[in-house]
Design a protein around this nucleic acid. Structure first.
Length: 424
RNA sequence: GGAGGGGUCGCAUAGUGGCCUAGUGCGCCCGCCUGCUAAGCGGGUUCCGGAGCAAUUCGGUCGAGGGUUCGAAUCCCUCCCCCUCCGCCA
C-alpha cells in the first residue's frame, strides 16, 4: 500500500495517477486522518509516559498514605488515557482501512488511457498462420477430438467448468511441465504452495478488501482459494526480514487458479477461455528497489520465450493507465494469436508492484548484516496461463482432419507427436 | 475430534506482579591485538512508531486480541500455532 506519509509528500502525483486509473480516492481524507492520528499519538504517548513514571514512583513509595494518594491520582489520569487511546485506535483503523483501498502509483512510462482499448501494442512477432482450409475454433476441435467435454463439466459443477480428456489432457499437462522446466533452466526456483490461504494473506497480496467478490471462500475454515499463485508467493515471506544475499529471488510455481468471475453472463461464453478453475505457471521475483525495472524486462523476456519456442505468433502490450491492476505500477501483457476464432488471447501479464505488496505483507530485507531494513520490490508474471495457451496451441497446430500436431518442444512431455480424433 | 504440554530478542535459554531499562550463552556487527586464520580482549546487536536539523528523547512490542491492576513476560478470558498420546483418514 501507499503510506499516508507518501501521499502527503506526493499529493499531486498520487492524485494524477488515481485520475488516470479512473479510481475515485479521497486523498484529503487520508491527509486529515493522518494529521489526526499523529496528534492523537502525541497525546496518548505523553499520558503513557506519565503513567509509567507514576507507577514506578508508587512501587518505590513505602509510606502507605502517600502511596494511596498517588494511586488515587493516577486513577484519574488513567480515565483520560483510556479516552485518548480509544480515539487514537479509531483514527488509526479508519486510516488503515482507507489506505488498503488505494491502488499503487503508476510508472511515468505507462500510457494514459481510459480503458483496455487504449493499451499499446509494443511489438508483434510472427504472422498469423494461414491454412489451406478454414481453421476451426478450439471448441469445435475439442468436440471433434473428444478432448474437451463441456456438458459433463457443467453437469458435475456448473457453468464455466469443463473436462479435458485423452490427448488434449496430455497436451495440457505437457505444457505445464515444459513451462516449469523452462523457468527452472533460467534460474527460477520451483515452489509448491497451498491453494487455500487465510484472510491476512489475501489482504497482504492486495486481493482484499476490495476484490472479495472474485474469490471463492470456505466459510467453515475461513480459507480463501487462490485466484493466482502470486497470492501465495507474496506471502512466503510475510512478516519476515529477508537475510542479506538472498535477493534477487526468482520463483516459479504451478497452481490451479480459482476465480468467481461473476461478471456479465454472455461474455466469452464460447469455449474455455474464461472459466472458474484453470492452471497457471507463475513467475515471481523479490528484489532490491534498484533492480525491479530490469527484473520486469527479464520477466517479459522469459514469458515471451514460450510462444517463441512454441512458434506461435504473439504480441506484447503495454497496459494503459486504466487497465494496470490495483497492485501494479506497470504491466505488460502477452497475447497469442488463435487463428480458429481469429483473436488474440491474453496468456501472460507481467507486473512490477514496487514495494506496494511488501508494505502490506510487512516484508523487509537487509542488504548487509546489521544494516537497516528496507522494503523489497516484488514482481509477478504468468508464464503462462493455461487453457488459453492450450487453445492457442490447438488452433495453431490443427490439421485439416481436426487432428493436432504436437509442437516439437512438447513432444517429450506429451509422449506423442499427434493428437488424433477419438474413437471417431 | 478428545486428553495433556508448550509458544520470551536470529538460535538456545533465564525470568510466577514493581530490583525487567527482559539477563546469559551462541551467532552477527564494529574496533583492538596477533605473519594469515582461529583464539583472545573491548564495545554493540529485537522490531515498529511519534517528536526533533541533529545529538537525542518518548511510546509500543515476550504467539494474537481482550480483561484485572497505580503497575503485567508474569494473573484471568478468547483465539491461533507447535509438540506428545488417542481417534479418524488420502
Amino acid at each position: 500500500m501507499l503510506t499516508a506519509q507518501f501521499i502527503r509528500e506526493n499529493r499531486d502525483r498520487v492524485a494524477r495517477d488515481m485520475t488516470n486509473r479512473g479510481a475515485d480516492v479521497d486523498l484529503d481524507r487520508v491527509i486529515s486522518l493522518d494529521e489526526q492520528r499523529r496528534a492523537a499519538i502525541q497525546e496518548v504517548e505523553a499520558l503513557r509516559a506519565d503513567r509509567n513514571a507514576a507507577s514506578k514512583l508508587i512501587g518505590q513509595t513505602r509510606d502507605p498514605d502517600e502511596r494511596n494518594r498517588r494511586i488515587e491520582s493516577q486513577r484519574e489520569v488513567n480515565t483520560l488515557l483510556e479516552t485518548s487511546e480509544a480515539s487514537l485506535k479509531e483514527t488509526e483503523s479508519a486510516l488503515h482501512e482507507l489506505l488498503l483501498t488505494i491502488p499503487n502509483v503508476l510508472d511515468p512510462a505507462v500510457p494514459v488511457g481510459k480503458d483496455e482499448s487504449e493499451n499499446v501494442v509494443v511489438e508483434t512477432v510472427g504472422e498469423p498462420r494461414s491454412f489451406g482450409f478454414s481453421p476451426r475454433p478450439h471448441w469445435e476441435l475439442g468436440e471433434l477430438l473428444g478432448g474437451i467435454d463441456f456438458e459433463r463439466g457443467v453437469k458435475m459443477s456448473g457453468s464455466r467448468f469443463f473436462v479435458l480428456r485423452g490427448g488434449v489432457a496430455r497436451l495440457h499437462r505437457a505444457l505445464i511441465q515444459w513451462m516449469l522446466n523452462s523457468h527452472v533452466a533460467e534460474g527460477f526456483e520451483e515452489a509448491y504452495v497451498p491453494y487455500m490461504l487465510n484472510e491476512e494473506s489475501l489482504i497482504a497480496s492486495g486481493q482484499l478488501p476490495k476484490f472479495r467478490d472474485n474469490l471463492y471462500h470456505d466459510d467453515e475454515e475461513d480459507y480463501f482459494f487462490i485466484p493466482t499463485a502470486e497470492v501465495a508467493l507474496v506471502n512466503l515471506y510475510r512478516d519476515e526480514i529477508i537475510e542479506p544475499g538472498m535477493l534477487p529471488m526468482r520463483l516459479t510455481a504451478h497452481t490451479p487458479c480459482f476465480r468467481r468471475e461473476k461478471m456479465s453472463a454472455g461474455r466469452d461464453v464460447r469455449g474455455i477461455k474464461r472459466v472458474h478453475q484453470f492452471e497457471k505457471v507463475e513467475m515471481f521475483v523479490y528484489c532490491e528497489p534498484g533492480e525491479s525495472e530490469a527484473e520486469l524486462d527479464r520477466l517479459v523476456k522469459q514469458a515471451r520465450s514460450l510462444p517463441e519456442a512454441l512458434e506461435i505468433p504473439y504480441r506484447v502490450l503495454a497496459l494503459c493507465s486504466a487497465d494496470v491492476g490495483f497492485n501494479a505500477t506497470r504491466t505488460f501483457d502477452i497475447e497469442m494469436h488463435a487463428p480458429g476464432a481469429d483473436e488474440w488471447l491474453e496468456v501472460s501479464s507481467a507486473s512490477n508492484c514496487l514495494d506496494f505488496q511488501a508494505r502490506r505483507a510487512n516484508i523487509r530485507y537487509r542488504s548487509e548484516a546489521g544494516g537497516p531494513t528496507r522494503f523489497p520490490h516484488m514482481l509477478n508474471a504468468s508464464g503462462l496461463g493455461l487453457v488459453r495457451t492450450l487453445v492457442a496451441v490447438m488452433e495453431n497446430y490443427q490439421q485439416e482432419d481436426g487432428s493436432i500436431e504436437v509442437p516439437a518442444v512438447l513432444r517429450p512431455y506429451a509422449g506423442t507427436a499427434r493428437i488424433e480424433p477419438a474413437n471417431a
